[in-house]
Amino acid sequence: MDFLRPTAWPDALAMKAERPEATPIQGGTDVMVEINLDKGRPAALLDLTAIPELRDWSREGGEIRVGAGVTYSRLIAELGTELPGLAQASRTVGSPQIRNRGTVAGNLGAASPAGDSHPPLLAGGAVVEAESVRGTRLIPIGEFYTGVKRNALAPDELIRAVRVPAATGPQYFSKIGTRNAMVIAVCSFAVALDPGGRRVGAGIGSAAPTPRHAPQAEDFASERLDWDGQGPLDPGVARRFGELVAASAAPIDDVRGRAAYRTHALAVMARRALGWAWDDLRGSA
């Protein structure tokens, strides 16, 4: 095995072009588990943690560009206002030690259907900034997940950053598990309100082969919410929203939960999350 440790981003891209089979490693919270348990031995490790620019985030217009090396802990500490949905999801990842190392880019690289960053990235309309020696590709989040633990990256590409619109309204993340920590989601849900654009974003996790949007639910709520009057949320609208979210899932039975349970739980989480978000919006008006 080789251990490659570039200290500059262009060098990392050159190494990945030359060694497309090299496995990138950041927090190592997925990669090292595989190696320790001998589930697979990469030909080479491409360590990205010595590249300073990956560790930064910046605001570019209405967008937050989160560098691939930004840990969950920093996201929670520094981006709770700009990206509340993603920060909430980050708070539920693993334990403090895992959050001190793990990154959203690693979550995207692993592309587990249960990854916690995915629902808020979907709800918030994120774009993955993939780069190779050939140039930069901006991949809309809905096109990034291509199958169970598969993503749209080409073999020579690395994730440079994820770009997420700064929140323009309330956002919520909700996750079901057996404990309040160290839990892989049984299923999860995120909602984001954009009152200016009168749009609702909805992302679901751990309830289909990939994380995915709930487009019918998004369209329905965007249309039916009382954006002008901002009256109390119509319980019928909330319930229907939950049903449509559940209908867009394709869950399976597995050790963590049955498909029927996941469908039911998604409907409940979606209904409640929309309620919390709507109440916040009304409260802030």
Binding site: F3, I25, G27, G28, T29, V31, M32, V33, I35, N36, L45, D47, P96, Q97, I98, N100, R101
Partner: peptide
């Protein structure tokens, strides 16, 4: 603080 088992 980190898990040393997950740091290469």
């Amino acid at each position: 603080p980190v898990c040393a088992c997950l740091v290469a």
